[in-house]
């Protein structure tokens, strides 16, 4: 069998895999709110910072 069949099969499978991931992402509501996550991802740091400060103080 020619190698091009293998290459094509792989590329189609990869393409379809990404496509399925996209569908799952839409279904899980990832595209419903495009603003809040951008703010949310910055929060974690501040809580950690605060804890660090506290721990330094107690030390």
């Amino acid at each position: 069998m020619s190698v091009i069949y293998i290459v094509l099969t792989v590329s189609v499978i990869v393409g379809v895999a990404f496509f399925i991931v996209f569908l799952m992402a839409v279904k899980s509501g990832q595209y419903d709110d495009s603003y809040t996550p951008s703010v949310r991802m910055l929060f974690e740091d501040e809580i950690v910072n605060q804890k660090k400060e506290n721990s330094i103080k107690t030390d």
């Binding site: 393409g15 496509f19 996209f22 569908l23 839409v26 595209y31 419903d32």
Partner: peptide, 18 residues
């Protein structure tokens, strides 16, 4: 929530690129 337009856009974009 109606998400059909996003699905359609995704499918058309996927097919278009390939």
């Amino acid at each position: 929530v109606n998400r059909t337009l996003i699905y359609k856009l995704g499918i058309a974009g996927f097919a278009f690129g390939n």
